[in-house]
Design a binder for these strands. Sequence first.
DNA 1: GTTTCGTGTG
Length: 989
Amino acid sequence: MEHRGICANCQTYIWLLDLCLNSGSLVECKKLHGKILKLGFGNESVLCNKLVDVYFALGDLDGVVKVFEDMPNRSVRSWDKIISGFMEKKMSNRVLDLFSCMIEENVSPTEISFASVLRACSGHRIGIRYAEQIHARIICHGLLCSPIISNPLIGLYAKNGLIISARKVFDNLCTKDSVSWVAMISGFSQNGYEEEAIHLFCEMHTAGIFPTPYVFSSVLSGCTKIKLFDVGEQLHALVFKYGSSLETYVCNALVTLYSRMPNFVSAEKVFSKMQSKDEVSFNSLISGLAQQGFSDAALELFTKMKRDYLKPDCVTVASLLSACASNGALCKGEQLHSYVIKAGISSDMIVEGALLDLYVNCSDIKTAHEMFLTAQTENVVLWNVMLVAFGKLDNLSESFRIFRQMQIKGLIPNQFTYPSILRTCTSVGALDLGEQIHTQVIKTGFQFNVYVCSVLIDMYAKHGKLDTAHVILRTLTEDDVVSWTALISGYAQHNLFAEALKHFKEMLKRGIQSDNIGFSSAISACAGIQALNQGRQIHAQSYVSGYSEDLSIGNALVSLYARCGRIKEAYLEFEKIDAKDSISWNGLISGFAQSGYCEDALKVFAQMNRAKLEASFFTFGSAVSAAANIANIKQGKQIHAMIIKRGFDSDIEVSNALITFYAKCGSIEDARREFCEMPEKNDVSWNAMITGYSQHGYGNEAVNLFEKMKQVGEMPNHVTFVGVLSACSHVGLVTKGLGYFESMSKEHGLVPKPAHYACVVDLISRAGFLSRARKFIEEMPIEPDATIWRTLLSACTVHKNVEVGEFAAQHLLELEPEDSATYVLLSNMYAVSGKWDCRDQTRQMMRNRGVKKEPGRSWIEVKNSVHAFYVGDRLHPLADKIYEFLAELNKKAAEIGYFQDRYSLLNDVEQEQKDPTVYIHSEKLAITFGLLSLSDTVPIHVMKNLRVCKDCHSWIKFVSKISNRAIIVRDAYRFHHFEGGICSCKDYW
DNA sequence: GTTTCGTGTG
């Protein structure tokens, strides 16, 4: 044509360009483009549009832009073409720019350009304000009815979490196509509105709209997320019915559903029947297995995936890494780390987070820290994981540094950050810092997150701010078993067991299901107050709830029954535990020790040692307490030796138990040594020593130690004052004692308890001020209890004050008519006052009421066996020898001034009639036996269940002188150290 | 328009 000089027209070039399109020749196209411009066809919009088509098709985007820029009059069609063309190439930036130009040039966008620009927005993470402006334009153009525009708009709003806006667009649609439904349903499902997603699916189903595989995948994923597994299974049936059961995406969602149940039989069935598996299919099953702890199976699948020529990606590796992290499988985790580097995915944000978590969880904090410092990505998760790392080390200063540094770097702490740092504050006792962070929590609006809430409750509850913890729980709108349990165990930790149980009940009443930790906390609270019946009920509840195999509940039950003295049941629960841990053993030992079954406690402790199980400091503490309670010096010392060998002698709690042990066994010197050698003491240590001194009659030492305690800045508590006040009482420091009593509330902010009032009554009345004691009782702000009246009555017996004594006895008999001690005290008081009629009346009253006196008993240990004696006992195999030697001792004692006072409680007639040996008190027999059987060098240790009487006390003093031996008697009230003819109580007890 | 992954609590 050209040779002949015939001019080609527009149509010719269109045909020629079509040929280029078919042959794919960019060179030819460019030649033609040149000729078109030369011939002046550049103004023809048909040709220009065709050129744009060809350049797009051949991938020459510069060509496209050049043609478009040179076009003299660009029609809407041209704009649509170029915008949608760039959208197809996923070049969102270009689309957004072109759209702006289009608006600037006052060209009205069509459905096509709007749809493209909305897609561009969603791919580009553009500000949502821009999207809203586009939305406004769409409304102005009256195009909102069109699904072509509205569907991407729904998706865009949903992606940005603006679910209400999305729903509005969806509701305004005149005709909803299947894409509209999917956009809305997946929008709900992906934004935490899973229930709404399921409802909308039901609506769609009822409306008779055919469910596509897309919608199935979306709604199945929603079911999985909120654990509506039965709904998920019903959907599986629909999937079959509508022929989507082989679709990859649907199967992937089903695999996830089943592996979260977990039902791996079904998950693997779906997986194996799939026609084509992709990476997500493998990832779904791998993550399911990994999350349920089947890390080996997950790793196997990882290998299989590679065999099937599918490349494990970030998701695969992240799932496997978290499995390794929770199993502590550092080695396998490190192998995955190598794969990460080889596969070039080490800059993935999630993989990096999972790797860091691996090293932290496997306690390789050093590697973790190095990783953190050289991290390729910058995101809040890495910082959060580091907070966990330093929290594990109880390193609050480093945690806080991380917490501040991340904010300096512009990262905003989230709902994961606060629990980590607050937990560390709790564990190291930094309540002040915790409170500051709490204010930041409120400022940033995280105070309603259940995790944040539960940690705050735990922090305040653990540190005694139970009111604050309680208030936080009340502000929580969500039902959260963890927050409730935190408060419940907080109450229990501060010995407010009834309060703990009250809240447990309330929690259940509100319909919040307890879990294993909730049950075990509640059972422990029952153990704290020996609430056996309530404990049994909770035991039953936990059993019904399916926790019969749970270790923490089993341990709590062992402790409950042991503490309630239910030996058999405690053993039964103990035997039921499959994998007994040290807490199980401790529960038995400390429970038995606390319920008074100390022999059993020591037996279990021995059993535990035979089983070669490592005893903890807690076990040792309990064993020492058990030995202390029954004053088993020998076993206690053996335990002490083990403590030293195992290096637990530096533990404060163990040392405290040892102080009490030695004090209770009468070795106050050993107690003192233990106390002095402690590298670090706490309030309990001081209390144990003060109480020890007090019990041994070392009143001045007790008072001095109390002064020193205050000097070093240790805070005295209620226990301290019981020790100090009784010490004053023992040595007759009336004024000083009263001063201390006053200082309790005035200087130390302590509200005196009944025990303290009893001490003061003892203090005053023992010194002989009985009317003053009575006045004190009448004026004190609390209702006097039996102990207080008994104290007064006992002093009246000593001081022969019948008037006040009768007054005390009257109250005491009202409160405890069954207690034999009252009758005995009263009748003794009458006897020493010579009121024999009254004494006989009291004895008669006791008989009439069927009250029996507890018989006096004494014990002494000789050569590994304990010998017990009753009053006038002749049952001992060596009885004859004992009575013979006793007579000898009496004779020697009389020679140096001992005056037998043994008849003081008998009238003249009785004294003549009765065989005097019938009335020989058990302690005399025990001491005589001890002197006969033990070598001269060891002190005589005797225990008695009642208080030692005046005659015996005087007798023992003489005997200690005659025999040149230390005699230590522990009676129901205190210790008496007899040596060289004097007693540590200075005859004041 | 759909599916899979990392950090926090008693």
